[in-house]
Design a protein around this nucleic acid. Structure first.
Lengths: 69, 84, 69, 84
DNA sequence: TCTGGCTGACGTCAGCCCAT
DNA sequence: ATGGGCTGACGTCAGCCAGA
């Protein structure tokens, strides 16, 4: 094993590692973007549920007060 | 104890998304259940057409309206089961 | 204005632009991180509010049914 | 129309944060209001101490909201369940 | 019109954590 | 303990757009 082959092997090792990390970074960014959209969508859903619950609670409170008084 | 604390804040994004989807599913189920109970308790004498409401409910899980921006970017429903 | 001064001026222009964009990228990443934490906090708050609202709605419904029946 | 659509999804992160903080402040106000009304309608004979809720509201109003990650790691005495 | 401020996306380095 | 998978953070390039 000459030093020439060693340096070539190391270079190919490094190149392969960079390539894999490159694709991993792409997928990671994609997943992160999807996660942020998931959070925003979840916020919107919870927001609408919150509004609906408040309206329902208000209506039921009115019915309760009307029936009580 | 530490188990819940660890799984409550995973490192991978896929696990975070899965956790949020799971929580959202449970919360939506509880939300629809209490809404149905209240509607059933409030208006028992009236016979109403809740078939339409049921269809809409099954179409969009919660009472939330569809997000226009995300619908433009996402052509289809993303299933996170295969992502894991 | 000799070509030597022109190239030095262009190099300093480029270096200054890179420096400013570098700091801008730092601040942008910081703001994005803060935004994501803001979303997570908001989700947690809305989650607890919805739980409380559901519990309150359930209790009020029980009172309403009890008083009605 | 287009104004609301544009401002509803700003580009800068600062504007997004400001928008979310504003919405959260309004929703929290409506939440505490309806909770106070329901409590007042449910238990009129009892005089209760709602001073705690008021303090927490003024505590996290203009500043940063409690960090969830730190709350998961730190067994702090303040949790959102009892706070709200 | 056209520049400067922010942001999206990329590739790279460093580091953590889990499976081996 | 050691390697490999993911992610945090950095610097750079390209592009959008409100404001000069």
């Amino acid at each position: 094993s000459s030093p020439q082959q060693l340096s070539e092997e190391a270079a190919r090792k490094r190149e392969l590692r960079l390539l894999k990390n490159r694709d991993a970074a792409k997928e990671c960014r994609r997943k992160k973007k999807e996660y942020v959209k998931c959070l925003e969508n979840r916020v919107a859903v919870l927001e609408n549920q919150n509004k609906t619950l408040i309206e329902e609670l208000k209506a039921l409170k009115e019915l309760y007060c009307q029936q009580e008084g | 104890m530490s188990f819940s604390a660890i799984m409550a804040n995973p490192r991978k994004f896929s696990e975070k998304i899965a956790l949020h989807n799971q929580k959202q599913a449970e919360e939506t189920a509880a939300f629809e259940a209490i809404l149905r109970d209240v509607s059933a308790a409030t208006r028992p004498p009236q016979k109403q057409h809740l078939q339409l409401s049921q269809n809409i409910t099954t179409q969009y899980r919660a009472g939330s309206l569809p997000n226009v921006n995300q619908m433009a970017n996402n052509p289809g429903p993303i299933n996170l089961q295969t992502a894991l």
